[in-house]
Protein backbone atom coordinates (compact mmCIF):
# COMPACT_ATOMS: atom_id res chain seq x y z
CA UNK A 1 0.00 0.00 0.00
CA UNK A 2 1.24 3.44 -0.83
CA UNK A 3 1.95 6.03 1.83
CA UNK A 4 -0.08 9.22 1.60
CA UNK A 5 -0.37 12.41 3.62
CA UNK A 6 -3.19 10.76 5.54
CA UNK A 7 -0.74 8.12 6.75
CA UNK A 8 1.54 10.62 8.44
CA UNK A 9 1.40 10.91 12.19
CA UNK A 10 1.18 14.24 13.96
CA UNK A 11 4.50 16.02 13.67
CA UNK A 12 5.77 13.74 10.92
CA UNK A 13 7.10 15.08 7.66
CA UNK A 14 7.19 13.73 4.16
CA UNK A 15 8.18 14.63 0.62
CA UNK A 16 5.35 14.75 -1.90
CA UNK A 17 5.90 12.13 -4.59
CA UNK A 18 2.86 11.86 -6.78
CA UNK A 19 -0.38 13.76 -7.22
CA UNK A 20 -3.32 12.63 -9.37
CA UNK A 21 -3.59 15.86 -11.32
CA UNK A 22 -7.01 15.23 -12.78
CA UNK A 23 -8.83 15.11 -9.49
CA UNK A 24 -6.82 17.54 -7.39
CA UNK A 25 -7.98 21.15 -7.64
CA UNK A 26 -5.60 23.66 -9.21
CA UNK A 27 -5.84 25.70 -6.03
CA UNK A 28 -4.04 23.03 -4.05
CA UNK A 29 -0.98 22.94 -6.21
CA UNK A 30 -0.92 26.68 -6.35
CA UNK A 31 -0.67 26.59 -2.57
CA UNK A 32 2.54 24.64 -2.99
CA UNK A 33 1.26 21.07 -3.01
CA UNK A 34 3.65 19.93 -5.74
CA UNK A 35 5.92 16.91 -6.16
CA UNK A 36 9.21 17.40 -4.37
CA UNK A 37 7.86 19.76 -1.73
CA UNK A 38 7.91 19.00 1.95
CA UNK A 39 4.74 18.44 3.92
CA UNK A 40 4.31 18.27 7.68
CA UNK A 41 1.20 17.11 9.49
CA UNK A 42 0.58 19.63 12.26
CA UNK A 43 -2.84 18.80 13.68
CA UNK A 44 -5.70 16.43 13.14
CA UNK A 45 -9.21 17.68 13.81
CA UNK A 46 -11.53 15.73 16.11
CA UNK A 47 -12.92 12.64 14.36
CA UNK A 48 -9.61 12.44 12.48
CA UNK A 49 -10.68 14.81 9.72
CA UNK A 50 -9.68 17.33 8.27
CA UNK A 51 -5.90 17.49 8.47
CA UNK A 52 -3.89 20.60 9.21
CA UNK A 53 -0.69 20.73 7.19
CA UNK A 54 2.34 22.81 6.53
CA UNK A 55 3.09 22.37 2.84
CA UNK A 56 6.11 24.21 1.56
CA UNK A 57 5.66 26.92 4.17
CA UNK A 58 1.91 27.34 3.60
CA UNK A 59 -0.43 26.45 6.42
CA UNK A 60 -3.61 24.85 5.20
CA UNK A 61 -6.15 22.22 6.00
CA UNK A 62 -7.55 19.63 3.65
CA UNK A 63 -9.92 16.72 4.09
CA UNK A 64 -8.73 13.19 4.68
CA UNK A 65 -10.22 12.05 1.37
CA UNK A 66 -8.00 14.52 -0.48
CA UNK A 67 -4.98 13.70 1.67
CA UNK A 68 -5.40 10.03 0.76
CA UNK A 69 -4.74 10.91 -2.87
CA UNK A 70 -1.39 12.59 -2.33
CA UNK A 71 1.47 10.16 -2.13
CA UNK A 72 4.43 11.02 0.07
CA UNK A 73 7.69 9.58 1.19
CA UNK A 74 8.21 9.83 4.92
CA UNK A 75 11.28 11.64 6.13
CA UNK A 76 12.91 9.83 9.00
CA UNK A 77 14.13 12.79 10.87
CA UNK A 78 16.95 12.44 13.26
CA UNK A 79 15.88 14.33 16.33
CA UNK A 80 17.30 17.82 16.47
CA UNK A 81 20.17 18.43 18.77
Amino acid sequence: MKTTIAHLKRGEKGIIKDIPIDIIPVKLFEMGCLPGNEVELLQVAPFKDPLYLNINGSFLSIRRETALLIEVEKINETPEI
Binding site: P25, K27, M31, S61, T66
Partner: peptide
Protein backbone atom coordinates in the same frame (compact mmCIF):
# COMPACT_ATOMS: atom_id res chain seq x y z
CA UNK B 1 -18.30 16.47 -8.89
CA UNK B 2 -16.03 15.71 -6.02
CA UNK B 3 -16.19 18.10 -3.17
CA UNK B 4 -13.00 19.87 -2.35
CA UNK B 5 -11.97 21.69 0.69
CA UNK B 6 -8.82 23.73 1.02
CA UNK B 7 -8.64 26.22 3.86
CA UNK B 8 -5.71 28.43 4.56
CA UNK B 9 -4.86 28.55 8.25
CA UNK B 10 -3.65 32.12 8.67
CA UNK B 11 -1.45 33.42 11.46
Amino acid sequence: TRSFFVVEMPN
